[in-house]
Design a protein around this nucleic acid. Structure first.
Lengths: 158, 158
DNA sequence: TTTTTAGTTCACAAAAAAAAGAACTAAAAT
DNA sequence: ATTTTAGTTCTTTTTTTTGTGAACTAAAAA
């Protein structure tokens, strides 16, 4: 029944909330978003189940589900310490580039759908179709530039 | 009580649903997303209230709310025809670049929050902080490139 | 002047998403 | 052997989101 709440300054709490909000807008679920925020802001980047639960004031089951989904989507991982049964959860921050590219997957979907729309549209609406095409082309350009930048990162890592 | 349903081929219906799904993942509400899909795919890009309502099989109030929100967020506009009281709603497709930039606002928020996180983090966690910084720098680079590309579009339009 | 059209507004219902709680489990500690 | 720890799983409850329906409005038509 001990309280494992992590001590946080007010500004840290505020940032966790802000981070959670941004993550929610990017389509992540609330509890997962809060966990991501906490793990990014906490001075100690490795927190136990109970520290997360007590700091975020969530139920065990909410924390369990959030952690497991984050583990499955490879946003977090955990360490164990000898002589200690607890797991220490942390962001997989070194894989930040993969996470960002996953977010950009949304742009790819958008491009694919718009290409399909362009393909089946009537040719009657010339200006409309031209604008759709310009938009799809712009998105493709952005997508390619992001991929190029990412390749540079990958090279640097090696 | 007339049925104003727009005639659509099966592939058009499927694309409307796909577009609606992508838009929902980008944070738009379901009814709004469907309206955007219909207006992008329909051969006639200018549809009346009742055509939208009957084609999407939504209630008057759902359509009314969706259209008004889309008008307010400037995703759509409408025309009137003389001797006709109906409004003809259409995508503001010529403003596609503005709409895309609005979506990219999410990236800016993300950068701003991560910069704040970096600013208040303990200096104890060197590698963690360096990775955060690299991520924020990458996002900033992407953001700048998108802005540069957009400037070119704006120039071309003039 | 009354009726119809083209919507709007708002209280409520339905559905979906999120969180909680309680019972359970497997391994470790006592 | 039984108790505790560190969670998991499943059902239920709560909250939030989305959509509906009925009453309303303002302008135009009959």
């Amino acid at each position: 029944m001990a309280d494992n709440k992590v001590v946080l300054k007010k500004e840290q709490v505020e940032l966790i909330e802000e981070l959670a909000n941004v993550n929610e807008r990017l389509g992540q679920q609330p509890a997962m978003s809060k966990v991501l925020g906490l793990l990014a802001v906490s001075d100690n980047p490795e927190l136990t189940f109970d520290e997360i639960k007590d700091t975020l004031e969530l139920s065990k089951s909410a924390v369990s589900q959030a952690l497991n989904q984050l583990l499955m989507s490879k946003k977090i991982s955990y360490k164990t310490k000898i002589g200690d049964r607890k797991r220490y959860f942390h962001l997989r921050i070194a894989d930040w580039d993969t996470h960002i590219l996953e977010q950009f997957e949304g742009v790819s979907s958008l491009i694919r759908v718009y290409e399909k729309v362009i393909a089946i549209r009537t040719t009657e609406t010339k200006e409309f179709n031209e604008n759709l095409k310009k938009m799809a082309d712009f998105l493709t350009l952005v997508h390619n530039q992001v991929m190029t930048l990412h390749q540079k990162i990958v090279q640097e890592k090696k």
